[in-house]
Design a protein around this nucleic acid. Structure first.
Length: 431
RNA sequence: UCCUCGGUAGCUCAAUCGGCAGAGCGGGUGACUGUUAAUCACUAGGUUGUAGGUUCAAGUCCUACCCGAGGAGCCA
């Protein structure tokens, strides 16, 4: 009885008889030979069916096999230089589990819209396989980074009673006899987490009802948000650069073949080593001025502005101390220049833009109350949040990183929509 | 919400000045013992997004609408 194995482990079974359970990815034939590309979810292997080596029935069955038919292949693993993975299978037996109906996704060209309508099938193709596999590695690296540094996972709720930064970009939903909103950040809850555990993080989906149609936006995306008590802005930047370096180098180490299959420029990723450059908002505006960009001092950077700023660096750049007026109410003012906030954005190189946003939080009760009033936010909604300043308030900082933007940059993709198994976009809610 | 571009065979796209609806891939049939997006031969396949309008004649021009893509603003 031959052993049932996965293609990923095939090298261990050279010259042995094995069984592969999978699906037909593609086939070719040449007279007395059939070449079946069989995938099993861990890889693709060429299975060679020679008319003289199998029963007439098995050889004839090859004809009936359509793309994505499910099959069980039994044969001997043989090393072959012509194979992309170094091995192929000399088939002895072939069992058809199910003949697939005509498969809509062919090995040839398709448009994004067509493929997105069939996202549940598109995930089977090798390119999508590589991207989702890298996403998995990114997420695992993120968790390992914080878990290995004494952080406690304190997940934030998805249903929230109020907006933390205005309601215009929130999804509203019925919640029994009242309204609830889908979270657009777990940060306020992580501040509670940091006061309880010192170092806390959350990881989960967040929702933004922004009517954005760009390569960097999803309405549902995953965010990892660490928050640390007794940490200032400089410490926050230290943590962020350690974190990004760790994640990128982990993917480079463990998912090299996937990156290569995506034709990613590995050298660009190899340069992502600490320290990352740190420039102030004022210094960033000088760069824009020199580049003669259309930019008004005091406003936030647009996509093209971010690209211009990051172009001058070969690794992520951290821009800190933006004008307080354009930042959220919970950002702490810079004591040396109260017009600035102690915040930081990390811009990825190669035009990928903002992947991290964070900073030091306002820890003074009175200033925070003033800010809530100034931003015209409902005070009663923040009672619990203000408690954190009443009962042993301390300086604290944190940041949020969008997983999909990180994966998009690491993979070198032109759009974030391929970095999540089932993307939710302004014009896409299915499949 | 605004700006730009697009919608033609199952898929990706052509169609000149408004003048016969085309190709490659995929499907089907056949050939080939080393193919790797195999190749070669033959073959079937069309309400040109929808509704109007102009014209002898509309895929092509005009109007409205629907759908999609890219970008802006906003953000991770």
């Amino acid at each position: 009885m031959s052993e049932n194995v996965y293609i990923a482990d095939i090298a261990k079974y050279a010259d042995k008889e094995v069984q592969i359970k999978g699906w037909l990815y593609n086939k070719r034939h040449s007279g007395k030979l059939w070449f079946l590309q069989v995938r099993d979810g861990t890889g693709i292997i060429q299975s060679v069916v020679f008319k003289g080596s199998v029963s007439d029935e098995v050889f004839k069955n090859c004809e009936e096999l359509t793309q994505e038919s499910s099959v069980t292949v039994t044969g001997t693993v043989s090393a072959d230089k012509r194979s992309a993975i170094g091995y192929e299978i000399q088939v002895k037996e072939l069992e058809i589990v199910s003949v697939s109906e005509e498969y809509p996704i062919t090995p040839k060209e398709h448009g994004t819209s067509f493929l997105m309508d069939r996202r549940h099938l598109w995930l089977r193709s090798s390119r999508q396989h590589a991207i989702i596999s890298i996403r998995h590695e990114v997420i695992k690296a993120c968790r390992d980074f914080f878990d290995g540094r004494g952080f406690t996972l304190v997940d934030a709720p998805v249903f929230t009673p109020n907006a933390c930064e205005g309601t215009s970009t929130l999804f509203e939903t019925d919640y029994f006899d009242t309204k609830a909103f889908l979270t657009q950040s777990g940060q306020l809850y992580m501040e509670a987490g940091a006061m309880a555990f010192g170092k806390a993080y959350c990881f989960g989906p967040t929702f933004r009802a922004e009517k954005s149609k760009t390569r960097r936006h999803l309405t549902e995306f995953w965010m990892i948000e660490p928050e640390v008590a007794y940490m200032d802005l400089a410490g926050d930047m230290d943590l962020a650069e350690n974190f990004v370096e760790y994640v990128v180098q982990r993917v480079l180490k463990n998912k090299k073949s996937e990156l290569e299959s995506l034709e990613r420029n590995l050298e660009a990723l190899q340069k992502v080593i600490r320290p990352f450059p740190r420039i102030s908002y004022d210094e960033a505006t000088e760069i824009l001025k020199k580049a003669e960009a259309e930019f008004e001092y005091g406003s936030d950077f647009g996509g093209t502005d971010e690209t211009i700023i990051s172009e001058g660096f070969d690794r992520p750049v951290m821009v800190h101390r933006y004008p307080a007026a354009i930042k959220a109410f919970y950002m702490k003012e810079d004591p040396e220049d109260t017009s600035k906030a102690l915040c930081v954005d990390m811009l990825a190189p190669e035009g990928y833009g903002e992947i991290i946003g964070g900073g030091q939080r306002e820890d003074d009760l009175d200033i925070l109350i003033e800010k809530i009033k100034k931003h015209d936010l409902p005070m009663e909604a923040f009672n619990w949040y203000l408690d954190l300043r009443k009962y042993g308030t301390v300086p604290h900082s944190g940041f949020g990183m969008g997983i999909e933007r990180m994966v998009s940059w690491v993979c070198g993709l032109s759009h974030v929509r391929e970095t999540i198994p089932f993307p939710r976009l302004m014009h896409r809610l299915s499949p």
